[in-house]
Design a protein around this nucleic acid. Sequence first.
DNA 1: CCAAATCCCTGCGTGC
DNA 2: TGCACGCAGGGATTTG
Length: 274
Amino acid sequence: MPELPEVETVARALDAALRGRELRGAELLGRMRLPFDAAEATRRLKGRKILGVRRRAKYLVFHCEGDAWLLAHLGMTGTFRLEKGSVPKGKHDRAIFRLKGGDELRYADARRFGFVGLTDAPAAGGVPAELDRLGPEPLDRKFNARAMAAKAKGRKTPIKVFIMDQRTVAGVGNIYAVEALFGAGIDPRRPASALDAGEWRRLAAQIKAVLRGAIEKGGSTIRSYRTVDGTEGGFQRRLRVYGRAGEACPGCGGGIEVTRQGGRSTFFCPACQR
DNA sequence: CCAAATCCCTGCGTGC
DNA sequence: TGCACGCAGGGATTTG
């Protein structure tokens, strides 16, 4: 379940491995969430070098010569691998980008919640215009307690659902929303508009801290997430409540509970989170 | 505008 | 060992 830290880890690895590499063509092996015109991609990318790979929210943005841009989302189970063309293709490989020299960038995704494809050249921000509706990057200065509190005015939505809304803050998914709320001592079921200034400050600080910590450990591998070289993340061992229903709360020793919000599992400690 | 529900998809864990 | 079932959930879309 790639969220911001996992996508950031992948983006850094892809940037290091692909920067300066020349593209030869693209190939579609299987359907994805969005249609992908491999022939058109080949026309746009052939002979062009990859200038850089960046992350915005949970999206990967590939900047290529000729003002060509690729956008990818890992969905739930998407992975990128860089392999020799001679390595047999995987069962779930959906798209391949051939590189000069014989290597291939391969996108695999068992559950098909993700996609890769051409996108429009960006506006001023350096990311495609279609990502404009996303909220601020949580590790940017533009993201802070005051801005979040202002957006929450009049919102009855539970605070956990609110911070998972990509318009509130970009890149926070289920795992890190749960962890940040635990760190901040806030009950995930409370209406967003009910938080006071101190709670907003704690929550903003926890979102930043949890994401930074997870990036440092290469993200969390719960099930399928892998970075580009196939290795697992390390932050799953540091998760304090996510996936730990019935276990002892690391704060008070009480039982961690699980409920459902917006169709997703929420783990929390009813004693520590008020 | 807001809020909640629904859909997409398939590997995996569980229970019998 | 096999099978049915439910769960995992990001984001687009639909419904109210």
